[in-house]
């Protein structure tokens, strides 16, 4: 990481600490849910942006995480236990689900996860003895840490901010480790990655499982945040929403999912005057974005920057040579 990046991250963190002070409860709630979705989207970014596989089940991983955390905390155990169980379970499920799907190429993972999302929804709705069926679960407490309560909204915001920073650091570590570079190599040129000894299947599977665990972690936050969970919050449309967060922000960029989550969460507020047309406008925007800039908003930003302030261009033949 360069000095510029660290400076940017520090300024962003300061903003995140000071902006919510003295704000209304509603704004704090929106910010908290943005942080939560950023964590889920970060996980999906690992799967989509780095390993190049589409997962349409991120919301169901959040759901699994949320229900596990709810059951653990309702049974009287501490939230941390629920959080660990949620991430562990979603990691294992990710491995089990990804293994068959990634045996074959094409985008089978997309279909398997699509089916999985529906399955999870059905189980959450039908197994009333465990999940409360369509009435969901209520009354999950917000956790205490060494006597410090997170019951108030601002306190809870800082608690989620800490988790967000941890997740972002872990993500950054993964991406910059030799292991994360293997993810990138895989996306850019799978044949070459394989010929250099990268076990593409194992790496892709791990990327998917870790990405799913991030989803589980986000779900563990949702339980004490909303304090009411029901199957409808984890349907396919929510998985699509998280996918669009990653894509709109810029898949494969570090800050992409955070920007995308901000857009997806704030846009309904900004487009409130359009009432029912909001999703339409959004879907149309995504299509246009995909045509002009598959790298999402950050990709678009890079493109515009390159036009305004062109970087020193590599001689075309040299660039070719470097590729060979």
């Amino acid at each position: 990481m360069s000095r510029k990046h660290i400076l940017f991250a520090a300024i962003a963190l300061l903003l995140l600490i000071f902006v919510p002070m003295g704000q209304k409860n509603y704004i704090i709630y929106v910010l908290t849910s943005w942080l939560m979705f950023s964590i889920a989207a970060m996980g999906l970014n690992l799967t989509l942006g780095y390993a190049g596989q589409i997962s349409l089940a991120q919301a169901s991983f959040m759901g699994i995480g949320a229900y596990i955390t709810a059951l653990v905390t309702l049974a009287g155990y501490h939230w941390v236990l629920g959080w660990i169980a949620a991430m562990g379970a979603t990691f294992v499920i990710g491995l089990l689900l990804g293994y068959p799907a990634l045996r074959v190429q094409h985008h089978f993972l997309a279909f398997v996860t699509l089916a999985f999302n529906t399955l999870v929804f059905l189980v959450l709705r039908n197994e009333e003895w465990l999940t409360g069926g369509s009435h969901g679960l209520v009354g999950m407490p917000r956790p205490d840490f060494f006597g410090i309560s997170t019951g108030k909204n601002l306190e809870f915001y800082y608690f989620v901010l800490v988790l967000f920073v941890i997740s972002a650091l872990v993500f950054s570590w993964i991406v910059h480790s030799p292991w994360g570079r293997a993810f990138k190599a895989l996306r850019e040129n799978p044949v070459r990655a394989e010929s250099l000894g990268v076990d593409t299947r194992r790496i892709t599977l791990l990327a998917f499982a870790i990405g799913s665990a991030f989803g589980g972690g986000a779900g563990a936050i949702m339980t004490p945040l909303v304090q009411f969970i029901e199957p409808g919050s984890f349907g396919l449309i929510h998985s699509l929403k998280i996918l669009l967060m990653v894509v709109v922000g810029g898949a494969g960029f570090y800050y992409g999912p955070m920007l995308g989550a901000a857009v997806v969460i704030l846009l309904p507020e900004l487009l409130r005057f359009t009432e029912g047309y909001y999703l339409m406008i959004y879907a149309a925007m995504v299509i246009v974005l995909m045509v002009y800039s598959p790298g999402g908003l950050i990709g678009l930003g890079h493109k515009i920057m390159a036009r305004v302030r062109p970087k020193k261009e590599v001689r075309k033949d040299m660039a070719k040579g470097a590729q060979l």
Partner: peptide
């Protein structure tokens, strides 16, 4: 949709068709 996106590879196109499905659904509903 398909033609201008073909050069970008499969994933952007898949995303675009997901968005298209959402768009059609919302338009019918609205």
């Amino acid at each position: 949709i398909v033609e201008p996106m073909h050069k970008h590879g499969t994933i952007p196109l898949v995303i675009a068709t997901i968005a298209l499905g959402l768009l059609i659904k919302e338009m019918v509903k609205e």
